[in-house]
Amino acid sequence: MKGRDDAPAVPTFSEAQLAEVHRLQALYPDPQGALLPALHLAQEAFGYISLETEEYVAGLFNLSPAHVHEVVTFYTLYFRERPGRHVVAVCHNLSCHLAGAPAIIAHLKTRLGVAPGETTADGRVTLLSVECLCACEAAPMMQVDDRYELNLTPAKVDQILGGLA
C-alpha cells in the first residue's frame, strides 16, 4: 500500500453520485448487491479503481477493503491502473480466430506500437486481447470503448484508430 502522503487526492463522489449509489443500494434486498454497479460508477468518475477507491467504496458499503479488492481483481472490466483515453479490446476467440483475428491483432500491434495489455506512450489507447464478445457473426471484431466494431479488415482498423482522439 502506498503511504498516504504520496497518494493521489482521496477519491470522493459528488453529491449526485452519492445519491445514485444510495438509490442503487436500495434496489437490492441487501445493499451489497449494488457493489458492482457502484464500482462501475467509481470507474466512470475516477478513470480507474485505485486501492484508495477500493477503500472509499468499501466505506460506502460497510465492507472490508479486502472484500472490495477481491471483487475488483476478479472481473476484467475494472481497471486497476489508469487506462488510455480509449480502450480497444480485440476478440481472439474461436470464430474471430477463424475469420482472421491473428492478422488483425498483428496489425493493431504494429499500428499502435504496443502489445495487448499495454497503453500507447501518448496515453491515447490501451490495447487488450479478449475472449468472445458474442458478436461472432461479424468476426473478426473488437470493442472500442462502448462500441462494437464489426467485420474488421486492416483498412477498417486504420480508419477506426484514425478517428480516436
Binding site: 451489497q32 458492482l36 462501475h40 472481473y75 476484467t76
Partner: peptide, 27 residues
C-alpha cells in the same frame, strides 16, 4: 425489474456464479 450489469467474467454465466456476483461478490 432491477437491471444489473456484470463486470467481465465468463463464469458469472453459470447460475450460482451469477448469483454470487449479483450479491456483490466475486462470481
Amino acid at each position: 425489474i432491477v437491471v444489473h450489469r456484470g463486470a467481465g467474467a465468463y463464469i458469472c454465466g453459470e447460475e450460482t456464479g451469477l448469483i454470487s456476483s449479483l450479491e456483490g461478490k466475486k462470481g
